[in-house]
Design a protein around this nucleic acid. Structure first.
Length: 889
RNA sequence: GCGGGCGUGAUGGAAUGGUAGACAUACCAGACUUAAAAUCUGUUGGGCCUUGUGCCCGUGUGGGUUCGAGUCCCACCGCCCGCACCA
C-alpha cells in the first residue's frame, strides 16, 4: 500500500560509493544483494549443505513438506522453508550431520488444467515450473542439499513407486473393489470433488451422479487399530493433529444385531444394523437403510417409485460434506421389521439419503429422542418420539414436546425411563456396556468394534499421474507387471496425435498403442491398466526416498537406517489428516515389504504445523464488475486517507479486509522475488519469522518488511562500529556480557521450541542493550559476535558478514553454537509483586534466595499491606517463591 | 452437517494458573538537517480525579472453578482448517 507521504523505500544514499561518513567513523552501508551473493557462493563452493553420513556425528533430518510446482514461489513457501532452515542451520551448529532436502510433488490436476486452458503439455509445463521455482528458491540462501532433488513425475521416482506397488500387491496390502465416484453424465468422465460445484460438473454443468467403478485400494483400514494406538507415542506432534487423526480413524464400540423383516422379498428376512447407542433401543421409531443397501437395490428393481427415489439420492457429489448437508429425505418402503425385544412391536423401514453404505452395515435404527437428525426425520414423516432417558433433575422438557433432541455427553449420569438391563441412574457409557452384555447374553446381537477409517482408493482415471503397473489379460485376469519392465512410463502423446486433454476422459485409455503389452504370466496379448495413482501416493514416501534419492531400489537400507526418521517435519495444518495418515500407513507397508527398517514405522518424530501468510485485501466498496462480482485492487493501487482507504486513480472507496489468505483472484499476493530484490533474502526471512508465532497466520505488511530491513541495517551498523571501536574496558563490560549470556540462553530455548518470533523479540532486546552499552571494545565485539551467531539461523548472510567483520574464525555456520555461562545468569535479587485479594498493590525487592517466611514478613510489613489490613490479621498469605505474594484480607 | 483450532491496545503479537500488553509497527513530540529522508531520544490500553508509589475498567460474549484466570471448565458468537478424487 502506498502511504500518503509517498515515501518509498530507498537504500541508495550515495549512488557511487559504498562509503559514507557518520561522525568520525567511515563505514560501508548494508548492501544485502552483494553480501548474499557472496556467501551463497562461498557455501556452494565449500559444499556446506551436502548431507553426509561421515564423521561419526549424530544425524538430524529436517524436512519441509515439498511444494507443488505451480511455477510461483509464494510467501507461504518462504515461511515454511525458512523455519526448516533455522532448525537445519541450528542443528549444523550443534554438531549434527544434517539432511535437509527439497523436491517437488509434481503430478496432479493443475498441470492438466493448464494444458487444457493454455495449450502445451503437462510434462513441459511441470518441468518448466520446477526450473522457475528452483531459480526463485536459490536466492533465499536455504541450507538445502540440492544434489538430492527430484520430482515425483521423474520416471526414476515413479518407477520405484511402481516397484513398491508391486511389493504391496504381493504382500496383500492392495486389492480391487467397487467404489463410488463422481460421474459427469454429459462429459462421460470421472470428476474430482473440487470439479463438482453445487452438485454439477464444472465444465458441462450437468447434475453429477454417484456411480460405481472397480478401483484399486490400499488396505489401510486393516491397520486402523495400530495407527490409532501408535498416535500415543507421537510425543512431539501437536495435540490437535493427534486428536484429529484419532477422530478420523474413529474407533467405536457398538452392537450389531438384526431386525426380523416381516414379509420381506425372497432372500431378505432380516436387516442387519450397527449402532453405537444400543441403550436407546427402546426409543427406536424406524429403521433406515442406505439407497445403496442390497435391500434398497432389490426393491428398486420392480418399484419405479423407489427407483426414482434412489436415483434422486444418488445425485450430487460424493463428499461427506455434501451428503451431510443435504436435506434429510426418506422413502417408506412399506416393509416393517420386528423389534428384537417385543415381537408385537413393528417398525417401518425407510430408505434414507443420509445413511452411508460404507459405514457399519448401511442400515440404522432411528432414536429421535436422542439424535437431532433422527428427530428432524421423524417429524417430517410423522413417526413417534420416545424418550429413553432424561436429566437427573431440573425442569426438562422431553423431546416429545420440545422438538429438541436430548443428547448429553455419554459420560453424564442420567435418569433412565426405559432401562432394560441396568439401574435407573447410570451414565450413557455404563448403559451401553450393560446393553451390549444383555444383548449378547440373550443372543440378540454382538458387541462389535468398528472404525470410521475406510480403505484408501488410489485409482484415478487421469493422465498426469503414476501408472498403476498391472496388466489385464483375458486368460490370466489382473496380472502384476514384471519389475524388470519398470518404469511403465507415461506416453508423451496419443500415438499418432498430440496429447489432447480438452477431450474428456483419460488419454491413456484412448491411446492407440500404449495399452498393448504382453501378459507377464502367459506371454499372450494383454492390455495395460490405464488408471494412474492418487498423488497422495507420491507424497507418502518421498521422505524415505530423500535418504537415497538415486538408489536402484525404492530405498537403500543403509541410508534409510542412518537418516530415518525425519527428526522434524514442517508443513501446513491442512495436511493434518490425509497426507500424514497415508504416510504413516506407507511407512508401515514399506517396513513389511522390507524397504524401511522397523524403527521407521512412525516416519516423523516431530511435527510442526505452520500458519499461512496473509495480506489485507482491498475490495471496491462502490461497484462490482459487469458480472456482479467484487472488484479487488492491488495494494499499490490504493492509498490511505484520514477518512478511509481509496483507489488512487478513481477516488473510489475500498473496504479493507485484513488477514485474507493470499490468493491470485483477490490481488493480494506478495511476490517474494520483489521483496528479495528490493530488501534482500535476509529481510524476507527475518520478516516471515518475526511478529507472529509460527503456528499462526502472519500478515504480510509493507511496513513490517521495511522495519525488518531497517533492523538488519542497524545490526550491520552496530557491528561496523564495534569492529572499529578502540575503547578500553569501561566497567560496563560485565553488564553487557550478562545480557549476552541471557540472550544466548533465551534464543537457544526459543529456537528449540519453535518460538522464532520470541527469539526475534529477544534479539531485538539484546540489540537495544548492545547499542546502548558503554562497554569496552573487546566486550562489544564478543557480544556482537554472539549476536551474529544467534542471528545466523535466521539471517545467515548478514551473520557471516558481521562474523567475518568482527574477526570470527572461519564461517559462522561452522562455528559451534554458543553456550550460556550459568554463572553469568544468576541474579542477586528479585522483584516480587504483592497482591491484595489478587490485585497487584505494591512490589518489593528481595534477595533471590530469601526464605518464604522472610518474604512473608517483609510483605506484611509493607505500607500498602498494613493499610489494607487495617489492624486485622490476614485470612491467608500465598508466597510463590520468585513469583508473587498474595495477601487475602 | 461433522471433526479440529483460533479470538488480547490503532496494528502484529508477549505472558510454566502468578505484575496483562514484552518485542515490533503506527502515531505524536524532541535532537540532528537549509529542508526532507535516514539515524538517535522520548511518550502512547481506556476512564476518573485529589496528578499519586492514586483509584476504577479492560484479553470476543455470558456464566463457573480458584487466594489468583488471557490461560482451566460450560454455553454462545465470529473467523480459519479438514471432511477421504485439490495439493
Amino acid at each position: 500500500m502506498r502511504r500518503r507521504t509517498g515515501r518509498r523505500h530507498n537504500l541508495a544514499i550515495s549512488p557511487l560509493g559504498l562509503l559514507y561518513a557518520q561522525g568520525n567513523i567511515i563505514m560501508s552501508r548494508y548492501d544485502a544483494a552483494s553480501i548474499e551473493a557472496k556467501w551463497q557462493e562461498a557455501w556452494e563452493k565449500a559444499g556446506t549443505f551436502t548431507a553426509t553420513m561421515e564423521g561419526g556425528k549424530p544425524k538430524y533430518y529436517v524436512l519441509e513438506m515439498f511444494p507443488y510446482p505451480s511455477g510461483k514461489l509464494h510467501m507461504g513457501h518462504v515461511r515454511n522453508y525458512t523455519m526448516g532452515d533455522v532448525i537445519a542451520r541450528y542443528k549444523m551448529s550443534t554438531g549434527h550431520n544434517v539432511l535437509h532436502p527439497m523436491g517437488f510433488d509434481a503430478f496432479g490436476m493443475p498441470a492438466e488444467n493448464a494444458a487444457i486452458s493454455s495449450g502445451g503439455h503437462p510434462k513441459d509445463w511441470t518441468y518448466s515450473n520446477i526450473d522457475t521455482m528452483v531459480d526463485q528458491m536459490k536466492p533465499l540462501g536455504l541450507s538445502l542439499d540440492w544434489s538430492r532433488m527430484f520430482a515425483t513425475c521423474d520416471p526414476e521416482y515413479y518407477g520405484q513407486q511402481q516397484a513398491l506397488f508391486l511389493d504391496f500387491l504381493e504382500a496383500g496390502l492392495v486389492y480391487r473393489k467397487n467404489a463410488v465416484v463422481n460421474w459427469d453424465p454429459v462429459d462421460m468422465t470421472v470428476l474430482a470433488n473440487e470439479q463438482v460445484i453445487d452438485g454439477k460438473g464444472w465444465r458441462s454443468g450437468a447434475d453429477v451422479e454417484r456411480r460405481e467403478l472397480t478401483q484399486w485400494f490400499f488396505r489401510i483400514s486393516d491397520m486402523a487399530e495400530e495407527l490409532l494406538d501408535a498416535i500415543d507415542g507421537l510425543d512431539n506432534w501437536p495435540a490437535k493433529v493427534k486428536l484429529m487423526q484419532q477422530n478420523w480413524i474413529g474407533k467405536s464400540r457398538g452392537l450389531q444385531f438384526a431386525f426380523g423383516l416381516i414379509d420381506g422379498p425372497e432372500g431378505f428376512d432380516r436387516v442387519e444394523v450397527y449402532t453405537t447407542r444400543p441403550d436407546t433401543l427402546m426409543g427406536a421409531s424406524f429403521v433406515g437403510i442406505s439407497p445403496d443397501h442390497p435391500l434398497a437395490k432389490h426393491l428398486e428393481k420392480d418399484n419405479p417409485e423407489i427407483a426414482a427415489f434412489c436415483a434422486e439420492c444418488r445425485k450430487g457429489g460424493t463428499t461427506e460434506e455434501a451428503l451431510e448437508k443435504a436435506e434429510k429425505k426418506g422413502f417408506n418402503t412399506g416393509l416393517t421389521v420386528r423389534h428384537p425385544f417385543d415381537t408385537s412391536w413393528e417398525l417401518p423401514v425407510y430408505i434414507a439419503n443420509f445413511i452411508l453404505m460404507d459405514y457399519g452395515t448401511g442400515a440404522i435404527f432411528g432414536c429421535p429422542a436422542h439424535d437431532q437428525r433422527d428427530l428432524d426425520f421423524v417429524r417430517k414423516y410423522d413417526l413417534p418420539v420416545v424418550s429413553t432417558f432424561a436429566p437427573l433433575s431440573g425442569d426438562h422438557v422431553l423431546p416429545e414436546e420440545s422438538g429438541e433432541a436430548y443428547v448429553p455427553a455419554k459420560s453424564e449420569k442420567v435418569r433412565w425411563l426405559k432401562p432394560y438391563a441396568w439401574d435407573e441412574e447410570v451414565t450413557g457409557e455404563e448403559a451401553i456396556d450393560a446393553a451390549i452384555a444383555f444383548c449378547e447374553d440373550n443372543a440378540v446381537g454382538q458387541g462389535v468394534t468398528k472404525f470410521r477409517l475406510r480403505d484408501w482408493g488410489l485409482s484415478r482415471q487421469r493422465y498426469w499421474g503414476c501408472p498403476i503397473p498391472v496388466v489385464h489379460c483375458d486368460t490370466c485376469g489382473v496380472v502384476p507387471e514384471k519389475k524388470e519392465n519398470l518404469p511403465i512410463e507415461l506416453p508423451y502423446d496419443e500415438g499418432d496425435k498430440p496429447l489432447d486433454l480438452s477431450n474428456p476422459g483419460n488419454p491413456l485409455a484412448r491411446h492407440p498403442t500404449w495399452r498393448d503389452c504382453t501378459c507377464p504370466a502367459c506371454g499372450g496379448k494383454a492390455l495395460r491398466e490405464t488408471d494412474t495413482m492418487d498423488t497422495f501416493v507420491d507424497s507418502s514416501w518421498y521422505f524415505a526416498r530423500f535418504t537415497a534419492p538415486r538408489a536402484e531400489t525404492p530405498t537403500d537400507m543403509e541410508a534409510a537406517k542412518y537418516w530415518m526418521n525425519v527428526d522434524q517435519y514442517i508443513g501446513g495444518i491442512e495436511h493434518a489428516i490425509l497426507h500424514l495418515l497415508y504416510s504413516r500407513f506407507f511407512a508401515r507397508a514399506m517396513q513389511i515389504t522390507g524397504h524401511l527398517p522397523e524403527t521407521a514405522k512412525e516416519p516423523f518424530d516431530a511435527l510442526f504445523t505452520q500458519g499461512m501468510v496473509t495480506h489485507a485485501i482491498y475490495k471496491n466498496a462502490e461497484r462490482t464488475d459487469e458480472n456482479g462480482r467484487a472488484i479487488y485492487h492491488y495494494p499499490a493501487e490504493v492509498e490511505e486517507r484520514e477518512n478511509g482507504t481509496f483507489v488512487i486513480a478513481t477516488g473510489e472507496q475500498v473496504e479493507v479486509i485484513p488477514s485474507a489468505k493470499m490468493s491470485k483472484s483477490k490481488n493480494n499476493v506478495v511476490d517474494p522475488l520483489n521483496i528479495i530484490s528490493s530488501y534482500g533474502a535476509d529481510t524476507a526471512r527475518w520478516f516471515v519469522l518475526s511478529d507472529s508465532p509460527p503456528e499462526r497466520d502472519v500478515e504480510w505488511t509493507a511496513s513490517g518488511a521495511e522495519a525488518s530491513s531497517k533492523y538488519l541495517a542497524r545490526v550491520f551498523r552496530i557491528a561496523t562500529e564495534a569492529a572499529a571501536s578502540e575503547k578500553g574496558p569501561q566497567g560496563a563490560d560485565e553488564a553487557l556480557l550478562k545480557e549476552m549470556h541471557k540472550a544466548i540462553r533465551d534464543v537457544t530455548l526459543s529456537i528449540e521450541s519453535f518460538g522464532f518470533n520470541a527469539a526475534i523479540a529477544r534479539l531485538y532486546a539484546f540489540t537495544n542493550a548492545l547499542a546502548k552499552s558503554k562497554a569496552g571494545a573487546d566486550a562489544q565485539r564478543a557480544a556482537t559476535r554472539a549476536l551474529a551467531q544467534l542471528m545466523a539461523p535466521m539471517t545467515p548472510h548478514l551473520a557471516e558478514e558481521i562474523w567475518t567483520m568482527l574477526g570470527g574464525e572461519g564461517q559462522v555456520i561452522d562455528a559451534p553454537w554458543p553456550v550460556a555461562d550459568e554463572a553469568m545468569l544468576v541474579e542477586a535479587s528479585v522483584t516480587l509483586p504483592i497482591q491484595i485479594n489478587g490485585k497487584r498493590r505494591a512490589e518489593i525487592s528481595v534477595a533471590a534466595d530469601l526464605s518464604k517466611e522472610e518474604v512473608e514478613k517483609i510483605a506484611l510489613a509493607h505500607e500498602a499491606v498494613v493499610k489494607a489490613l487495617d489492624g486485622q490479621a490476614p485470612k491467608k498469605i500465598i508466597v510463590v517463591p520468585g513469583r508473587i505474594v498474595n495477601v487475602v484480607v
